[in-house]
Design a protein around this nucleic acid. Structure first.
Length: 292
DNA sequence: CACTTGACCTGTCCGC
DNA sequence: TGCGGACAGGTCAAGT
């Protein structure tokens, strides 16, 4: 999915666009995408005013005046796209991937009382949204076990090293993708930060010295901050709340750069392999797997 | 318990 | 052009 920078970008857009608006109507066409019973929708969603939009890990939280929160996970192909007078629709000369909405991958539609709309689009139907009492959100299994936010001050190198050492025998890539170690890293920023720290993704955590983990901690924060600045990564179909693409991919050093030169080593080609079951991009010169 | 693999879906791309 | 297979940014349940 959308990883931390993409969800953060959507959150910031929605904050600007929908806070203060009142939901007038809801439609959905797929029970998996929005499993709440119709009674919940009528009692806690329709007629509610949007109080705030938050993010924890890769989860988007829309707090409502009814004391309920819309909890949303975009997974691989989810999009939350707003259409209203603040945002131009199809035909506007921006780089939008979104044409006329709703379309065939629209799973949920919300209409506000000013006749603007918020669409939950999700081609692969892995994503979901659900209503629950705001006070219950921190008590969900996911929220109880998810790791720290990597961009908060409390996420020190010491905390990172302490938490990742629990995954001693797995690969470093699998460990940083593990949401219980730290929140928000996905395949793009795993590859980008490991290249930054000059660590081979298949290295076992126990074989990575603290000094390297400290560098990795710094690189994780660097790539996540840079990506937020660029509005996230659009590799396939990610778009922000206005339906626009992110531009981090233009700055990517290894992700989706197979066949191109490593920025550190002109003439050395970035290769694509498979680590932790995921497509993995590395420079064969900067990232050497130590043979135990 | 730690770790790995397959399943969940739809769409696209690549080779034959 | 058509068809089969691999692959795609995430997470979990089930397996070893």
């Amino acid at each position: 999915m959308p990883e931390l920078p993409e969800v953060e970008t959507v959150k910031r857009g929605l904050r600007r666009l929908i806070v203060g608006k009142t939901i007038q109507a809801e439609t959905h066409n797929n029970a998996k995408s929005f499993p709440n019973p119709p009674g919940d929708v009528k009692a806690f969603l329709v007629g509610a005013k949007v109080k705030d939009v938050r993010r924890r890990a890769k989860v988007l939280l829309i707090d409502l005046s009814t004391g309920y929160t819309l909890v949303i996970h975009l997974k691989m192909t989810g999009q939350m796209v707003y259409r209203g007078k603040e945002v131009f629709g199809a035909g506007h000369p921006n780089d939008s991937l979104i044409g006329k909405l709703p379309d065939k991958s629209t799973r949920v539609g919300l209409t506000f009382t000013d006749n603007s709309h918020l669409f939950f689009n999700d081609q692969r139907k892995f994503g979901w949204m659900r209503l629950m009492p705001t006070t219950e959100v921190p008590n969900t299994e996911f929220m109880k076990k998810v790791g720290p936010e990597p961009l908060e001050d409390a996420f020190t190198p010491k905390i990172f090293i302490q938490r990742i050492r629990r995954r001693a025998n797995t690969t470093i890539k699998a460990a940083i993708l593990d949401q219980t170690v730290l929140a928000g890293i996905g395949n793009i920023y795993a590859d980008e930060s490991l290249w930054g720290a000059k660590i081979h993704p298949a290295e076992r955590v126990k074989d990575v010295p603290d000094s390297k983990l400290k560098t990795l901690h710094k690189e994780i924060r660097f790539v996540l901050n840079l990506s937020i600045e660029k509005g996230g990564s659009t590799d396939r179909n990610y778009v922000n709340a206005e339906g626009k693409k992110g531009s981090y991919i233009d700055f990517a050093r290894v992700f989706r750069q197979e066949g191109k030169d490593c920025p550190r080593h002109p003439g050395v080609t970035i290769i694509k392999t498979r680590v932790a079951g995921r497509g993995t991009h590395t420079c064969p010169v900067c990232q050497v797997l130590k043979l135990a």
